[in-house]
Structure formats: structure tokens, C-alpha cells
Design a protein around this nucleic acid. Sequence first.
RNA 1: GCCCCCAUCGUCUAGUGGCCUAGGACACACGGUUUUCAUCCGUGCAACAGGGAUUCGAAUUCCCUUGGGGGUACCA
Length: 467
Amino acid sequence: MIKTRIAPSPTGNLHLGTVRTALYNQLLAKSLAGKFCFRLEDTDRTRSNEDFTKEIIEGFKWLNIDWDGDMVRQSERGSHYQEYVDQLIANSKAYKCYANAEELEEMRKAQRAKKLPEGYDNRGRKLSTEQIKQYESDERKFVIRLNLGIDRNIEWNDVVRGPMSINTKDIGGDPIIQKFDGQVLYNFAVVVDDHAMEMTHVFRGEDHLTNTAKQIAIYQALDFQQPIFGHLPLIFTKDKQKLSKRKHGDIAGVDKYRKEGYLPEALVNYLIATSYSAIDDTEIYSLDESAKTFDPHRISKSPAIYDIAKLNWFNREYISKFSHDELMAHLKPYLKYDLSVFTETQQTDLIDAIRGNLNKFDEINNNVSYFFDDEEIEEKQIKFVDEGKPVLNKLLDVLSADGFDFSNASQIKEEINKIGEELGLKAKQLFWPIRLALSSRSHGPDLGFVISLLGKDKSLARLSKHV
RNA sequence: GCCCCCAUCGUCUAGUGGCCUAGGACACACGGUUUUCAUCCGUGCAACAGGGAUUCGAAUUCCCUUGGGGGUACCA
């Protein structure tokens, strides 16, 4: 049985890239009836924090991404790593390196000066027993490094990229596997855990390509069977840079989308579709539907550029599938206005009239605000109102009539049409001034309907203001 | 600097030697419907980075160039 995992580190909010990696891993697991696990990579104690952990878990929950078994925390597995560190030292596959920061810096400086590639020069491999004794009596701190041995190519067949090869001389010298304080480092922890958790497939971002080479070296040293690797393309922004919170702000995090009223299904669908196309050209699909035909070889190799317009389209597609009641329920938490001042029928008609305009739920307020608040007409639109004064006057007369029925939207519309006929106006000349005077907007639902919702007081007041 | 990866419309992509005068979707433009928004429908715009090589034939294979990106920590 195959097993995949998502392994985020709680050093920031839940990132879109993490979600996408989780999605592909889950797709892979589901498509092959395997398992999908969750492991928290919190070995960096200074950067990890509990708030981020919570946020990440909640983000996944919101997206309906769940995992098999309990979440594994690397920080709670300290002793598991030690035995393997000891084993490597015992086998002479790892060694103590006493070089301190100054020495390392000096080494790099020299490399830069000579235009040589920077990296650890493996000096710790050939320490004499005297030197070691000296360092020990000096109580020098040390780290544990993996001995990469003689230069060789590390090769693997990447599911999305094909045959890969990285030479050990290009990965920056013997990698540290354990810090001076006994804390094990990322690449080592990942290998030990992926082995312990029996991962069969490791799919992650292509920014891990060199890490994979290091990790394979660790698999080999430990004599573990290595999993199948796949490296996913990254998400870029229009500036062709890796999407990141630091550079691009909150568009990189899941939180923004939840707050603004995107559907998790739409985000999931969009994220899958960024680098994957269904075999039959289907665009709208759920995770489970996609899993039915998922083929990791179809994952694209080139980076995907983040495109909010496409996300919006997906979201609109999902919104359009809701019944009125479902939509209402989703809209409620975002609504800043109290629609219950309208009758049930009016509410239904209103929502149905504007639902096609919504990219996301928080846009509901902007579509409904003018029924409650008096708003200013945009400078450049004022001339249309001025040109339409005759229309406004006529309409004001009609609406001011004693006993005029404001509840009958279609009747109001009739009256407007009559004015248009009397004055011999085209649609735009007729409707624009009225709409602008009444709603300060150039777009909106049927005018008869708008007036009936506005009611007598607001309608008359707003019309009078412009005649 | 060094290593690695990537390269089809503005964007996401289809395409694995002939079915490609390159298909779909988003976006955009225009038209129709609704005497006004949106919806819906139709039409249009628009790409194989460049150069070699292989081949009867190349978007598809190979090489070079160019461009872009990622990595290069006692971070993950």
C-alpha cells in the first residue's frame, strides 16, 4: 500500500504552496487507495510556534483536507533520531566536526576570493587523534556531519521530472545532521521519519531538489529503502518570483481566502488545476473526482503563475451551483446589513438578482449597501444625472402621487417605461440617470425592483436631491 | 560564482514525429438576449524563445544560445 504525507513546518501561516503539495499527495494516495499522513516539522525550536501550528491545522480543516492517523510532531521524536546518529558514527559514516563559526566563515571567504564554489571542505574527516583530543579538552562544541565519501552522482527517477542526477561535490560538503545542541537537522529528521512512517512516495516543491540529493545520501548511509520522489513546480506571481508572504503579502496565505469568502472547494480546484490538467479537459472537479483519474505524470514541470482572475472564476462557478437557501447561509456571516427589513420574497429576489455579480462572499456588502446608506455619485457620472433631469422630474411626479404602490416592482417598471416612451429616450438615457440618482451606481438589478426595495422615503429623497 | 530545474496564446494548459493552417479554459474585445448590470449565447484577439542537427516529415528527439527560476545555513 502506498503512503504519502504533507510535512509543513509551523514557521508561518498556511501557505498556498503547502496546500497544493498536500493536495497532490492526497490525490496520489487516494488514486492508489493508499494513506495520506500529516507530520509537523518543528525541529527548529526558535522559529516554530504553536499559533502557526493551530492556524495550519485549522486551514487544512477548512479546506476539508484530512489525514490518516494522528499528526506526528518531530519535536516529540528526539530519541528516535539519536539511535541513528549513533549508528552512523559507529559505522564511520558520520563524524564530529569541531569547526566553529569563525573558522567556517574564514573558509568561505577564501573560497569566494578564489571564485571556488562555497561549501564545507570536509576538513573534519581527516582530523588526527591529537587534534580531536585537543578540541575535546578545550571543550569545543561539535556538530555531527554525514560523510559523503568520494564524489559520486546521486540519481533518482523523479515522477514529474524524469531522471535526475546531482553530484555530491555540488551539495555543499558533508551535511550537518545534528547541531551542537543535539537537535537533529531537517534533512536527517525527514529521512528517519519518512522511513519510520513507511512513506512510499515523497512529493514536494522543486525547491527541495538539492535536499533530495542530501536525503538520498542519508538513506544510503542508513541502508534504508528510499521512497519514490516527485518534485512539484512552484507557484509564482506575475513578477516571476516564488510566491511568498514576505514578498507578496497575504495572497500567499490561506487565511485571506477564508476571510474574504472563497469556497474551499474552489480554492482546492484552482490549486490542483494550476499544474495539473484532467485527461478529459474537465475544469470543475472535487478532490475525490480528480483522484479517480489522477496521474502524477501529468503534473506540469513548469511553474504556475498565480492568477486571481482564474480563482475568481472557479469561485463563481461553485457559487452558481448553490440553491438560494444554501447561498443565503453562506452569505450570512459576511453580511453587514440587516436584510430582514425586506420581505422574504424581496430578500430572495434581491439575492438572486445580484448573485451573478459575486466573485466572493464579502462582495455582498458592496452590492447591497446602497439600499441602506446614502452614497456619493462618482464625479465622472454626475453629468449623466444632470442630463437626465427631465426623466427624474417625471419619475418624481409619478412616485409622489397619493397612494402610489411601492410594493409592485413590475408596475413601477411600467411607469418608468412609460416615461421613456413619452420622452422618446433610449434605454441608457432613461435608466442611467434614474439608477445613478437612486443607487449612486451604474450597475444593479432591475430598476422597478430597486425602487420597490428602496421604498417611498428613500426613493423620493434621492430623486429630489438631483432635480 | 557554482549546481540543478524550466521554456506552447497576457494567464493555466492540451499536445509524447504526420490527425496542428496548434485545441480548451480564464482574461480581454465586439455582437446578440435582458429597452439598463450580471447571467446566458455567439464571434474575435492571441503562442510553439532563437539557432543548428536528426528525419521524407518536428511544438514533439538531440545540441548550443538566450531568458526565467530554484538551491547553495548548526532554516524548513
